[in-house]
Design a protein around this nucleic acid. Sequence first.
DNA 1: GTCGACTTTATGTCTGCACATAATAATCCA
DNA 2: TGGATTATTATGTGCAGACATAAAGTCGAC
Lengths: 233, 233
Amino acid sequence: MTKTPAKSWQAIQAEVTRRINTRIWPPGEMLPNEIDLAVEFGCARTTVNRALQALADKGVLERRRKAGTRVALNPVRKVVLSIPIIREEIEQSGAGYGYQLINAQKLPAPPAICDALQTPAGTKAYSVKALHLAGGKPFVFEERWVNILSVPTIQTADLAKMSANEWLVQNAPFSRGTLSFSAIIADEALAKHLTCPVGSALFCLERGTWNGEQSITRARLYYGPGYKMETSI
Amino acid sequence: MTKTPAKSWQAIQAEVTRRINTRIWPPGEMLPNEIDLAVEFGCARTTVNRALQALADKGVLERRRKAGTRVALNPVRKVVLSIPIIREEIEQSGAGYGYQLINAQKLPAPPAICDALQTPAGTKAYSVKALHLAGGKPFVFEERWVNILSVPTIQTADLAKMSANEWLVQNAPFSRGTLSFSAIIADEALAKHLTCPVGSALFCLERGTWNGEQSITRARLYYGPGYKMETSI
DNA sequence: GTCGACTTTATGTCTGCACATAATAATCCA
DNA sequence: TGGATTATTATGTGCAGACATAAAGTCGAC
């Protein structure tokens, strides 16, 4: 067996990845325990542990106490997706960022929203509609409901100057959230806001946030036609 | 200052998260260095380091040598998205999984594909079209091109029995890949395959994989109307 | 004053050791 | 034989100490 001199845990990670990719350790294969690997690599077990844990986080390895470590049968299931901050995303593309508040008002929330916000049916919530512009053109249409039981102060915020998202980030902490991606047909209202044809396919990102058990907000971001959200593995 | 007895790095992570959420450390705020935190928490610096690193990985903190650690201005940008294995996704929903090969043949690849596969324009590639069924109904339509310069053996694979994805996972290792999500209008061909109306909005996942500098495959998965890809933060 | 070289500092990582924990394997007893 | 108890084992985590490294700050030469 070839001696593999390793310096850092990243080097070990790379070597393990290489062995997986070259099928030295095919999917499903058990790999030697940390102590043996540490001996082989000439380093401390802690270092091996760190490398393997990182790979397990990525979903490349599956580890169980006592059972040991094995190569995941379905590699590459987990991807780190950076949810772009709209402003940054636009500015990085070189276009100027613009923001336009369409309206913000307290309204009786539709049943689906009351359900999502966990408020009694018919409760009022704060509705915010806004447009994010790239180079003066509509880029994302934002449709948001804010739970005024959790965040009453939003009603006094000047959302024409600061986007609801930025305001919430600074004023309403949250502990967990959900995200979903879907495709949706542009109806007349959406088409008008995004100045695109009715019937276009829009990429939709829906986000809900909670602070503990309290629901904060629920937002839908409709991206203009042709938008792609990209990431790499 | 209140003494915070901490047991594990997860507890420290939780405490730091709490301080961020409650604005004790607002966005942009510098936090004490690891040594001071270790003293405060009554643990080793290693333990603090681990907690903070985990938070930095999540995008909650920004760390730079010498500069120190600060609360990220734009929290929660990074999300771990588990790309569902179609078969598992369907089986988990309780529906039976079905797979149907539509066709697999060597064809001159369109320019966009040659470009993506990094082969000379007009080169032939292996085209695979297939359908994944949930409970007998079309769920995902898969349109794939495989680089036969990198993976010639795919031409002899029996893709009626094993999906191209599974075959590739077992036979063609890759070192990196790209993913993109978008929304697309169902044209006649797509509508026919997915038995949905022409003009439906389809969620589209496009994946490209490479082994080193060699391109392996490029696939598009078209999900039926109404599909949502979900994750939580 | 400006540019480089040196110092300082906070994080990054490694080591060796110890003990905790989960899950399997082995054993024991009814 | 079968079910519960105990041992074994691989990973999970903690600690103290050391050195590495990047980057900000400082100081000196010109």
